[in-house]
Amino acid sequence: MLEVEGLIAGYGSIQVLHRISLRVERGQSVCIIGANGAGKTTLLRCLAGLLRPSAGRIAIDGADIIGGSASTRLDHGITLVPEGRRVFAPMTVRENLEMGAYRRLWPRRDRGVPADMDMVFDLFPRLAERQKQPAGLLSGGEQQMLAIGRALMSKPRLMLLDEPSMGLAPRVVQDIFATIRRLNAEGMSILLAEQNANMALKSAAWGYVIAEGEFVRDAQSDALSSDPAVKAAYLGL
């Protein structure tokens, strides 16, 4: 459903991504592993319409979308769970979820939004308990749930997740990844960027290895997990 070819992007005169190409099939779960600063966040920001690439092609279901903004990406069913969660700290949990559905509430109101909010509350009962609290008072794990919940409120078909394990306790990381696998099992396409290669390769079917803005390997996750070079560089084995 997502095809990227020869993507080049950067900030000002600094080029970060050098001719990146990747594919995510419908319902597939794909991960990108690599060290800090390898270009994972830059890539996801391009895909989410937050950063304009200088060259290349991004297509969703065959339609070119490279010039679009974040709003048009959302209309195409692409949503981003950003690095560091980035919840709206002074706003309540419920308001954060409403904001996730912003494109479906403005300018035209989608009647399905309340039902989707109930679905998010079913998925994360902790959020239902705390729906009137300011998001800034939640724990890190709860904020990550909220960030995923907010992304779900846009009714996406492809969810981009940037470092969902960052700064979280191992138990909480397990829960978050279980949720990601569950969403994938229910049909959501997933593109996940992670430093925690171990967790990422366990939950994705296909993996790309990124280093200095280029993909250096890509293969089935199982194959990558047992690759000696990947093991040594990213799995700490």
């Binding site: 937050l50 974040a70 709003s71 981003l80 980035r86 308001e95 904001m99 846009s154």
Partner: peptide, 21 residues
């Protein structure tokens, strides 16, 4: 929703852009 979008943008510009504001 417009008023909330203003508050959201005030709280975190980047996150507001992510949700399409």
């Amino acid at each position: 929703i417009m008023g909330k979008a203003l508050r959201a943008a005030a709280a975190d510009r980047d996150a507001a852009a992510i949700v399409g504001v």
